[in-house]
Design a protein around this nucleic acid. Structure first.
Lengths: 341, 341
DNA sequence: GAAAACACCTAAAACGTTTTCGAAAATTAT
DNA sequence: ATAATTTTCGAAAACGTTTTAGGTGTTTTC
């Protein structure tokens, strides 16, 4: 292994390690002449600093950790894309871990990242997570944490989110304004904040427009990776409430599952039942009818989360006070065929 | 920052750092009594080894690097899932980087990983990559590399792949045996090995069944992230060769693009034109007609790639000879509606 | 009772950097 | 010429571990 180190350059040049290090880092107390010699030799010997040693000495790893529920999810892969691009731009590497929607695993992954001494951590909470002590513990240890998408209101740190309640409110209001009267909601499971908020937005929109909320029209879809939930609940819905005329689904995936069922069952969309999704998954333009949905800016979310995190990392490092931010990214309705009669 | 270190435990107990370290690592020359005291105190003080220091001392980081063309791709997100699960099981963290299908970026990312001193690297090549010196350089530096999915035959390292040529051959043979006579191919760009191999499989299948190969029936789809390519080429195909009766597409995405066009243009699938995809993207069961395709085992690929990589890492470390392996994962035809009349 | 064996512990070096502090050499000022 | 200053360099400590090589005291062996 011909890994060249500072000392190799130093002895090749007959100077000290200190001088080599300083020359390479542009210290001003090294003459231009020797600096040039050092740089040339470093180049010739193919020098590459050992980051582990640097990390130990400088007490930073230039690495951030990311915990997401799962990689196999279109939205998260887009967020991840945003994360990676911004992290690279700012000179950080990213270690990624998935919680598989399990609280225990999330906790374990977080511990791994802390042990690895990452400079900061990005988390999107698992569906199971309703205890946040592990996160508070990380914050207490002065490792900046920013939560994104699936957050906990009660944790005191920066967050990057969309206004789920408002987006849902807008979606359902749109349906009501379009003349739909009996609107079902396919909600997510009970713990995640965005699942709760979207449900709340749905409920408030009904009430705001003088439509009575009926809990029987709410179905739970807690399987994240498959559209079966949407398919099956659509089936159930149509037997229990055949006169329903629209569905607001928590996710494009369940919306598409519902549409799939309607297509197979000969139920016309949007003529008999309109369907409104959430996320603007790009698959939603492939399905027929194309899906009306809420555009959720995943790339920007990842981008912004990293940006805030790194700002906090450098502020912490330089002992400046960190001010936590709650960034709310804008969403908008993408009207397509599934709600237009 | 109340980070407890070995020396804190040592002084709390009035013993040496050496003893603490050894006790924690289970050395046998420490008495059971002091070991117990050390463990208890470490526990009480919430000791967590500083991996950076450990890494420096042991000269390994327990981290592997992964370079993929893009995270926003269903197949790669599944592979990534397999990678993460296996890496975790074996006690490694993973740093992920994307090349955005650019050779220069891939080269840069690889350098970053080497500098970070990862123990091994997993790469799926970018579409542009036709020079492999950066990879050979990594191997020369004794950092194990394993290539997966998008590989280079000429690089001397382990690889995890499917037999693209055979899978394509099987797919096209299937179409021929079903009675389709004029089969077009929507191929990928010219550089990637799997794009080449699928094309070759297509061509050989035609020839093996006495059908003359016609280069005019081959269309290039080199946009990886959108189905527009499939859509537009389907359109072109039908004006240039209205009598074509089947398409073998390099990817489910382009297959779905084609189906989308056919659906919109009122061309019946599979009655007028059958469509055969590749990858078994789960969206292929949502589209109508459901897509016949080749199942490509992404999870297993990621899993196996990590497994081989870590084996090579420990073999290298223990100065054992490493034998490179070429693992060929099995594929199979998933017959659905788009090819069944 | 002396030699040998054993059990238990620790000092110190090492991993490859960065950075502080000071020293020597060169330059400028007087 | 000497003094003051500036320029240029390097010794050494430090980051937190792991591990080698040995040291001390106790027990076993004959």
């Amino acid at each position: 292994m011909n890994d060249t180190k500072l000392i190799d350059i130093a002895s090749a040049l007959g100077i000290s390690v200190t001088t080599v290090s300083k020359a390479l880092k542009g210290y001003t107390d090294i003459s231009k002449a020797t600096r040039a010699r050092v740089i040339e030799m470093a180049d010739k010997m193919n020098y590459m600093p050992n980051s582990v040693a640097v990390n130990l000495r400088t007490n930073e790893t230039k690495t951030i950790g990311v915990i997401i529920p799962t990689t196999v999810h279109h939205f998260f892969s887009i967020v991840l894309n945003g994360i990676l691009e911004e992290a690279e731009k700012r000179g950080y590497l990213v270690i990624i871990l998935q919680s598989n929607e399990k609280y225990e695993l999330e906790k374990k992954q977080l511990a791994l990242l802390l042990q690895k001494r990452v400079d900061g951590i990005l988390i999107s909470l698992s569906n199971e997570t309703d205890d946040f002590s592990h996160i508070n513990e990380a914050i207490r240890k002065k490792t900046p944490v920013v939560l994104f998408d699936k957050i906990a209101k009660r944790v005191d740190c920066s967050k990057v989110i969309i206004n789920d309640a408002k987006a849902a409110f807008d979606a359902v209001s749109y349906l009501i304004n379009k003349g739909f009267k009996k609107i079902a909601h396919f909600r997510g499971s009970y713990i995640p904040q965005n699942s709760i908020d979207r449900f709340l937005g749905y409920k408030r929109a009904l009430e705001a427009h003088g439509i009575e909320y009926d809990s029987k029209l709410v179905y739970v879809c807690d399987n994240n990776t498959d559209f079966e939930d949407g398919y099956e609940n659509a089936q159930k819905l149509m037997t229990e409430h055949p006169d329903v005329d629209a569905i607001f689904a928590i996710t494009d995936l369940v919306a598409i599952g519902a549409i799939k069922y309607f297509n197979e069952a000969g139920i016309r969309t949007p003529e008999q039942v309109a369907v409104f999704g959430f996320s603007n998954w790009f698959m939603s333009t492939v399905i027929s009818p194309k899906l009306t949905t809420i555009d959720q800016p995943g790339y920007e979310m990842g981008h912004k989360a990293v940006s805030i995190l790194i700002d906090e990392i450098v502020d912490t490092k330089e002992l400046r006070p960190v001010k936590h931010q709650i960034i709310e990214l804008p969403t908008r309705i993408i009207e397509r065929e599934s709600t237009v009669r």
